[in-house]
Write a protein that binds this DNA or RNA. Structure first.
Length: 490
RNA sequence: GCGCCGGUGGCGAAGUGGCUAACGCACAGGUCUGCAAAACCUGCACUCGCGGGUUCGAUUCCCGCCCGGCGCUCCA
């Protein structure tokens, strides 16, 4: 496939350098709070990439780090009077629960910063040997930017004109140069710290990714991915740290996911447009709708997240799921319709080609919806057969292998979110319809539908419609068809 | 200020130097239905921010302008 490469500034072919396994590293979360939808856009787009690569038969070795030690974590945990491990545990668990809700697949390897301190220390020692690291009087270590002339090659920044001392942070007066960044931070009194051969302290933010990518993927690997904000300085610093030691490109290919806006503005708590995944689930939006809304705009474009967009995505998913139900449960005669078969072939080709072209998810959706319409028409006309069903099913399977929204896995995240809200004392934030829906069991729904069926048989449409209305108000949609009544949770 | 990205129907959004400018949502009319829902059909941008240029021809290339967003500090 072809994927934009930040390093080259062009759309390059993405292939495993060893011809077998694609080795990739993607920056994971800093677990100091619940993840917000901006975080998840990045993880979702990376998930789309991984799912598409797997669909095309590429083997993956995908590493994601979890930053479980940093300034915010230390500050928040000490404020709470607990260890950083106890503090982060909750957010790590929440993070994975959220990924599950959104259908984000697990990377092959998950690497935690606190479990790799020794690797980071080793790397800092090597940097020292290479003349790229120095220790200051307080016991901190810094990377010496002057030792890495290529600095800025990823973000295309020319820092040569930056004057030393122009904007020196008063706390960091010991650094040789204002732009030098921390590899290792000496602890302030009472702070979490590790005793190591390079002194007592904790790692700087950037060093973990260099150390862990090297550990799991080697000195040079295929792809490094993350949010656009990480390009500078985080990724630039990773490159400096790694390449100063290995003298090889850290990664050949770099992918950066664009930020999302919410209601046209950058998401921020002060703007009041800041949403965690849980906030949205409690409002009654389906995890699948959130997933589709966040991946339907190609990763390199700014995405404006709105509630209207979520409603839109919900409707689109409904259409796909309704069709899928018709396809699965319908009865078709043996045989095939050449027109359907031809459309299947074209649809699949166009779908794969769109994704192979820098993950154009917006374009990839189109042929799928085209096929849905064409198939529905054929079914309406009685010109859809058993072999058509099988062929169309295969296309939908490949669609769902990447988009992962047709198969309905929405009930579990809903239920968990409501449970969580109760535990956290946030029950007031749960949308009333959601509470009603969660409390309504399948058995209760089926009982009401049976009663409605009885009413309809005796042509008591008043009673039948009353039941339908009651269910509708609780978010249950009813569809009568020749094959009986169908219902779904809206 | 410097750098970067975008401005396509009511909304989201794809795309191309010249076929009827995808697709989704919404809306309107129709078919079907006890009524709905679902599904289908039809309609919905003579036009792609504005001005100029290149060209036989530009929404697509170039220049200028306006508007929106982002980065240059922690941040997915």
């Amino acid at each position: 496939m072809r994927l934009f490469n930040t390093l080259s500034g062009e759309v390059d072919e993405l292939v495993p350098s060893d011809g077998k396994e694609l080795r990739m590293y993607a920056c994971g979360p800093t677990v100091y709070d619940y993840g917000h939808i901006g975080n998840f856009r990045t993880f979702l787009e990376i998930d789309v990439l991984r799912r598409f690569l797997k669909l095309t038969g590429v083997q993956l070795r995908h590493v994601m780090n979890i930053t479980d030690v940093d300034d915010k974590i230390i500050r928040n945990s000490s404020a709470a009077g607990i260890s950083i491990g106890d503090y982060t545990k909750k957010y790590v668990e929440a993070f994975f629960e959220d990924l599950d809700a959104l259908g984000v697949q697990r990377p092959e390897i998950i690497a935690r910063a606190t479990e790799n301190i020794d690797r980071m220390v080793e790397l800092i020692e090597k940097l020292k040997e290479a003349g790229a690291a120095y220790k200051t009087e307080d016991g901190s270590w810094y990377f010496k930017l002057k030792a890495f002339p290529e600095y800025g090659k990823l973000s295309k920044k020319d820092l040569s004109g930056m004057e030393d001392g122009a904007r020196v942070d008063v706390d960091e007066y010991e650094k040789d140069s204002a732009r030098d960044f921390a590899l290792w931070k000496a602890p302030k009194p009472g702070e979490t710290a590790w005793d190591t051969v390079i002194g007592r302290g904790r790692p700087g933010w950037h060093i973990e990714c260099s150390a862990m990518s090297m550990k799991y993927l080697g000195d040079s690997f295929d792809l490094h991915a993350g949010g656009e904000d990480l390009m500078f300085p985080h990724h630039e610093n990773e490159i400096a740290q790694s390449e100063s030691v290995t003298h090889q490109p850290l990664a050949r290919h770099w992918m950066h996911v664009r930020f999302l806006l919410v209601d046209g503005k950058k998401m921020s708590k002060s703007e009041g447009n800041f949403y965690t995944l849980r906030d949205l689930l409690l409002k009654g939006y389906k995890a699948s709708a959130i997933r589709l809304a966040l991946i339907s705009v190609p990763y390199r474009h700014q995405l404006n997240f709105t509630f209207d967009g979520l409603v839109d995505a919900t409707a689109a998913i409904d259409r796909l799921r309704t069709f899928n139900g018709r396809l699965t449960k319908g009865k078709f005669e043996a045989g095939e319709n050449p027109e359907v078969q031809a459309a299947v072939k074209k649809s699949h080709q166009d779908y794969m080609a769109a994704l192979a072209n820098d993950l154009n998810t917006a374009e990839a959706r189109a042929p799928i919806f085209d096929l849905v319409r064409l198939s529905n028409t054929a079914m309406d006309q009685g010109k859809f057969f058993e072999a058509d069903r099988e062929a169309v099913k295969r296309v939908l399977a490949d669609f769902d292998a990447v988009f992962a929204v047709i198969e309905d896995r929405d009930a579990e995240p809903m239920r968990k979110a409501v449970e969580w809200a109760k535990q956290e004392g946030r029950e007031a934030d749960v949308a009333p319809e959601l509470l009603a829906q969660v409390s309504l069991t399948d058995d209760a729904i089926n009982a009401l539908l049976a009663e409605r069926d009885q009413a309809k048989r005796r042509r008591d449409f008043g009673r039948a419609d009353a039941i339908r209305k009651e269910l509708t108000e609780k978010g249950i949609v009813i569809e009568d068809s020749k094959d009986g009544v169908r219902w779904k949770r809206k």
